[in-house]
Design a binder for these strands. Sequence first.
DNA 1: GTCTATATTCAGATAGAC
DNA 2: GTCTATCTGAATATAGAC
Lengths: 248, 248
Amino acid sequence: MSENKLNPDTRERILDFAEREFMAYGYEGTSMRMITSAAGVNLAAVNYHFGSKEGLLREVFRRRLGWLNGERLRVLTTLEEQAKGTPLKPSQVLEAFFGTLLRIGEDDAHGGMTFLRLLGRTLTDPAEFIRTFFASEYAEVIERYKLALFRALPDVPRAEIVWRLHFMLGAMSYAIAGTDVLQVITGLGIGDAAGEALDAKSEAKKLAERLMPFLLGGLRAPLPSAMAAAKRAAPTRRRASDLAEKKR
Amino acid sequence: MSENKLNPDTRERILDFAEREFMAYGYEGTSMRMITSAAGVNLAAVNYHFGSKEGLLREVFRRRLGWLNGERLRVLTTLEEQAKGTPLKPSQVLEAFFGTLLRIGEDDAHGGMTFLRLLGRTLTDPAEFIRTFFASEYAEVIERYKLALFRALPDVPRAEIVWRLHFMLGAMSYAIAGTDVLQVITGLGIGDAAGEALDAKSEAKKLAERLMPFLLGGLRAPLPSAMAAAKRAAPTRRRASDLAEKKR
DNA sequence: GTCTATATTCAGATAGAC
DNA sequence: GTCTATCTGAATATAGAC
């Protein structure tokens, strides 16, 4: 991780350690003193380099999201060029959007699991400046991917696709945040809150393998209207074993 | 909502307004002075009634989660008695767990959308005392529902079911939190951050109708191993229109 | 760019009168 | 139970020497 590199650049050191502290204690729960003392730099350096604590948080995210969302746009553009005008498959769109994010978990150069967890935890922060910041950072990439999903699922009402994109973001966000009741109870998870897991990279890989099928299953689930219609016609009685056997 | 009732009980008034303020600004972002001045009670009353700010947050959640999780256990027990030893359907288990929660959104007596949003936002809070509190509050209900899902899906590896329960909790949590980038961009959502939406109850109902099929689709998605096997045998090429037409 | 020292505000908590 | 007044610590931010 970054703290082993002995980065001599004060600005980058602050960003690296702010990322860790914000991840572990949240924005409001982290003081600038915690960050600067962990990073071994002077307190006043934060205001010199970033203007304010808010400015620091924004820069922490801009550094990572700039790369991530640029990559997402690039990958989607490449896929669309290869498809030569035909719609992409839903699985391709999801892989481009969520796969690109999840691979950061295995890649410390772009933040690794520390950044993923920070992102997951911050996406539900109610602070106004955080929400408007995310909105502007994500605007372009969300718009492009929404359109790609509309094309990939031409027979599904667009409002429904937006709902499901919303749910997929939630499942992903919460999973990478790694702070839920299940983890505390079952011990299953993607690392401990204190910092790195012993084997964060293989955990990140397992997470991606489990999450992608779930998201695709949710996206392609029967619509509420279809379910209601089916129920009227003949009440369904699905067997649990369908799930394990199905290879369609 | 509660603030219209002119609740004369100081203790309950504090809980009602703490719920609103914590929802809107987060735990760390809300001061006791914000809560007491909004509630029109004395600052010292919080420490008198709840001992500390942490004690107040715990009581805010205990009041709602006590009822919710009791209800969840009761509903599951009833379903299992009716089934007379046969496994429940996955959809029944999900309806009991998530449906019971989502109906709170239409029921101000148990917190309404204010509480749902607070819950969604707080479930990813990294603060240690919050995480351990939730873990103990949820331990019993999670254990019971995990076992119900194991019985409902006997052919699916248990670890896989736990992963998917985790993802479902995430999709639900984020959806009820109502603070994501999509909402800001699309305007679609379950209400504004300032407080109630104009029609919070019908929004809550729409959310439940959209979320339940998504969760069921995710839970029942092909397993990663099955997908890999299918891909080896014959690369899938699903049509997008499957989704809209399928009535199985 | 980096540091010390400090200004200013605000937080949670409590003592003690009523 | 409720109130006023206050203690104590900690937060962000900045002025100004080096």
